[in-house]
Amino acid sequence: MNIIVNGNNRTVESPPLTPLLHVLREELDVLSPKAGCENGGCGACTVLIDGAPRRSCLTAVGSVPDAEVTTVEGLGAPETMSDVQQAFVHYCAAQCGFCTPGMIIAATAYLEGGGSADRVEISEALAGHVCRCTGYLKILDAVAAARDGGFDLSTTAESPHTTVLT
């Protein structure tokens, strides 16, 4: 069978019940989706399947023949980052970075679906994604700001949530 990964037509040899996550990582060498839990609990493996965010660890590759799969590599390279990617850099929304590919995919789908900058709505859209480092606030800042774009990536932004003890 075939799937389209980040615009490239790829032939898949793995058996149809193989989780898409492992097809991407082990067969096709697309490494940004992470095997965080492989049980649908963490969101680190989320990719876009025909534009919708899905856990690749819960998706049998045989159930999505000819699908268009987009991972964070396909959203933008270092020189061509999307606004969401730039916002994550600018707001330090990635710390260890392991949850980041899934977070950015989910945030991208949310904003492309007309999502607002409302923190509660963003939280709802990212509810399936676990981050252990950031405490989430910088991620919410980044997603809220991503729509406007225009980040100066030579600096980072101060989080509106940050309270500095004096």
């Binding site: 590599e73 270092p78 990635a94 970075g97 590919p101 990536l153």
Partner: peptide
């Protein structure tokens, strides 16, 4: 390492 994280690299 921000750009690497944000681009899956």
């Amino acid at each position: 390492d921000g750009v690497g994280h944000a681009t899956g690299r």
